[in-house]
Design a protein around this nucleic acid. Structure first.
Length: 280
DNA sequence: CCTGAAACCTGTCTGC
DNA sequence: TGCAGACAGGTTTCAG
């Protein structure tokens, strides 16, 4: 599920505490459990276990799709990839490295309070890093799309500096941090731009519209607590606002022509072929 | 520099 | 009913 709005929703929930669970902030770790070794990208397990014991969680933040836990020493960083999820549960049992409480649990942090952090990830693509230097993990990310400093002029110049298809470029986290398949399709449709348009073929007006659409869709996603699809459900509502994503065959909300699904950069891509023309 | 394919994984759905 | 194949919200790596 996780694109920027979904990660932001998870972050806010962990910060304030949800469903009777307490906030992560202020929790002290007394032990860890790792059930899938590859989930821990850095450092190795022994160092991780030794270092995490006694750590306090001081703050939570987000950078692109990364979730960042600021500890009293170093930072614990998560990337949820395709199917990762984080929540806070009671009574995880003793620290161990086998026999998770639920089938796809990959990592636990056990807190002195009796609560614990659960990283659950069906497809095992998610990763965690413990590091003193967050930039070593996500230092190559592009700007935050909702950052005030990202204006029309800057975005136009960013697009001009590349000669790439719009959709793969927007999905490239080193170009812009946080967009995934859903919000990219929705933003391109909202801007009436074809996903195969070359980035440096956009004029200033088109670039401005695209940035506005990206920010509009991300904000709409956050307002709706993200999108809930299939078996990964977090109570989000943005799926009810999809204009093109997973709307193949449904009439375009503007012109009525059926929405089509094509393949762009190996990703399923939803467009209205009438509203989003490739040729000027 | 740019594009496309493959790999990492499990679960679900579709079609024969 | 059963089973092979396609596909899924992401990212990295490699070939051309």
């Amino acid at each position: 599920m996780p694109e920027l709005p979904e990660v932001e929703t998870i972050l806010r929930g962990l910060r304030i505490g949800i469903a009777s669970a307490p906030s992560l902030i202020g929790q002290q770790v007394y032990g860890t459990s790792l059930f899938w070794s590859k989930t821990l990208a850095f450092p190795d397990l022994d160092l991780f276990k030794g270092f995490m014991r006694g750590r306090y969680i001081l703050d939570l933040s987000r950078r692109g799709k990364y979730l960042v836990l600021k500890l009293d020493q170093d930072f614990l960083i998560f990337h949820l990839r395709m199917s990762g999820d984080i929540n806070v549960q009671l009574s995880l049992g003793e620290p161990r490295d086998s026999l998770p409480n639920s089938p796809h649990d990959r990592l636990y942090l056990h807190f002195n309070s009796g609560w614990g952090l659960v990283f659950n990830d069906t497809r095992k693509f998610g990763r965690a890093w413990l590091t003193p230097d967050p930039e070593s993990v996500y230092g190559n990310l592009g700007p935050e799309p909702l950052d005030r400093g990202l204006n029309h002029s800057t975005f136009y110049q960013m697009l001009q500096a590349q000669s790439r298809q719009l959709k793969p470029l927007l999905l490239d986290q080193s170009f812009l941090a946080g967009l995934g398949n859903i919000y990219t399709d929705e933003a391109l449709f909202d801007a009436r731009l074809h996903p195969l348009r070359q980035s440096n073929s956009l004029n200033r007006q088109e670039a401005a519209t695209l940035l506005d659409s990206i920010q509009k869709m991300l904000n709409l996603g956050i307002t709706n607590n993200g999108a809930s699809i299939d078996w990964v459900y977090r109570g989000g509502d943005f799926q009810n606002h999809f204009q093109v994503y997973q709307q193949t065959g449904h009439p375009c909300p503007y012109c009525g022509h059926p929405i089509e699904k094509i393949k762009v950069g190996q990703r399923g891509t939803h467009i209205c072929p009438v509203c989003q023309r490739l040729k000027a």
